[in-house]
Design a protein around this nucleic acid. Structure first.
Length: 206
DNA sequence: TAGTCCCG
DNA sequence: ACAA
């Protein structure tokens, strides 16, 4: 583990290849029940570049009318999200430093040309809990800034199996994905990148 | 403002 | 910077 800044822990290659393959298998099982959908932005209705699903008691969703939110069911099927795979609950125990378990695991799939603009993860009630992020598949250029728009940013290449934790004073830092490096990994047969984001949504105490 | 466009 |  290396500390990139106060509250940012970076675990390069935390998951070895067999563990990555097992995670992909687990996510495939999730997506069979909770199919990937294209999220759209509030008000404008503009589609995001990623395709998305969730597992856990709550999932992050967005649409034109109701905006960003967490809800217990898939927006298209109405079914409950599948449970978070045990390996990811174990990861949280290993790196989060937070007693209560994660409630949401957002699954973002990036195609070759997908990007994600700088944003804050701020739709949770519990900012004391960190955000834990897992990269699988193709490399990406990840960018992280400060807690306000327009500040200086830093870029780094994230690789398959990497884990990054944003907590403490870095919990609300802006971050995004500027580009995918197509065919940089052989993990996913059809290419692309999967990002898994574990979050605590509700307040852990009382 | 989790996107897109345009400029230096 | 945008425009809801």
């Amino acid at each position: 583990m290396s500390t990139l800044a106060e509250g940012i822990s970076y675990y390069p290659d935390h998951f070895d290849r067999p563990a990555q393959e097992a995670l992909v298998d687990a996510i495939r099982d999730v997506v069979r029940v909770a199919p990937l959908f294209v999220p759209v932005m509030p008000r404008t209705g503009k589609p995001m570049h990623v395709r998305m699903s969730n597992c856990g008691q709550l999932g992050w969703v967005t649409d034109k009318d109701n905006g960003y939110r967490y809800q217990p069911t898939h927006p298209q099927t109405g079914r409950a999200w599948p449970p978070i795979p045990p390996a990811l609950l174990q990861l949280w125990d290993d790196v989060a430093g937070f007693d209560a378990p994660p409630e949401a695991c957002l699954i973002n799939f990036y195609g070759d040309s997908a990007k994600m603009g700088l944003h804050q993860d701020r739709d949770e009630q519990e900012f004391a809990a960190p955000v834990v992020s897992v990269s699988l598949g193709d490399d990406c250029l990840f960018r992280i800034g400060g807690t306000e728009r327009g500040g200086p940013t830093q870029s780094m290449r994230l690789r398959s199996g990497d884990v990054i934790v944003l907590g403490g004073p870095s919990r609300l830092r802006y971050h995004g994905v500027d580009r995918i490096y197509p065919a940089s990994s052989t993990l996913l047969k059809d290419g692309g990148r999967i990002n898994l984001t574990l979050r605590r949504v509700s307040n852990a105490s009382i």
